[in-house]
Amino acid sequence: MRFWCVRLLSDWSWEWRPYYGVWVLVAAFATVYGLSWRRHLRVTGRSLVAADRRHVYRFAGALAVLWITSDWPLGALGSGYLLSAHMMQFLLYVLGVAPLMLLGVPEWMARRFVHRLQIDRLYRIVARPLVAGVLFNVLLVCSHAPDTVDLLRGSQLGSFVIDMTWLLMGLIAWSPVISPLPEVVHESVLIKMAYLFLAIGGVSIVPAGFMVFSEYPLYSAYELAPRVGLSAVDDQQLAGAIMKVGMVPVVWGAMAVMWARWFYADHAGDQSYRRARADAPPRSEV
């Protein structure tokens, strides 16, 4: 029984293998979240309302995706057999777990969390679009450097560090857009859309391009792993395609939602303004 998914030299098997670290992590997140809610409801003397339930469902969704991403079989395949599975994990942490976590944490909980960890100022700095974008992309390049992956995927602790780094990257990347702390979220919709396009969707084209167009495998961890269906180069090309194309639906979907909300809010504002103008008495009568 292992703590975290790690590279193995044995042939891939569909026989289930337990990784207790994943369960402990998911249980720890669920426990802290549940206890925070219990304490909050007791102190405020209120019960869960529809908006609270939405938070809970989103956080539960984040934990479900976290579990699926980290545990067997995807975690095991991604840590030691297929680069394409490794890339799926990256996308799920960054585009699935992280945003769902941010959407699942209510403002009061986020405020208490950053205050207790004494990272209020740090978080505000890190969540600035420019800082978040640079940090995300530096970590993106570092965490996908062949030697980093080859080195870290060989040990359970290293594999854990890679996965948690991706989760942290996701939390940083999405904070300027959907942080539970409203003062951190950038006000301008256009800047948020540009940020999403450039920061999350932009730089990944570079490592993805290397993967797609490289003649030889870049990662020894996956090149020398027992094969699971795909050759090392085919697997690498698939991983590159997943990295690039996989970002598109989430990033563009988020941009579309933001634009639609902004458009309708603006449109509604125009209509109420026109209605107000129409209802107002003529200027000469005032």
């Binding site: 960890l117 990272i119 030697d147």
Partner: peptide
């Protein structure tokens, strides 16, 4: 913060070694 610091350090070392 601890995970972040360790992560950045190890990733940086890995990149540097590479």
């Amino acid at each position: 913060i601890g995970i972040a610091v360790v992560g950045v350090l190890v990733l940086g070392i890995g990149l540097g070694v590479g």
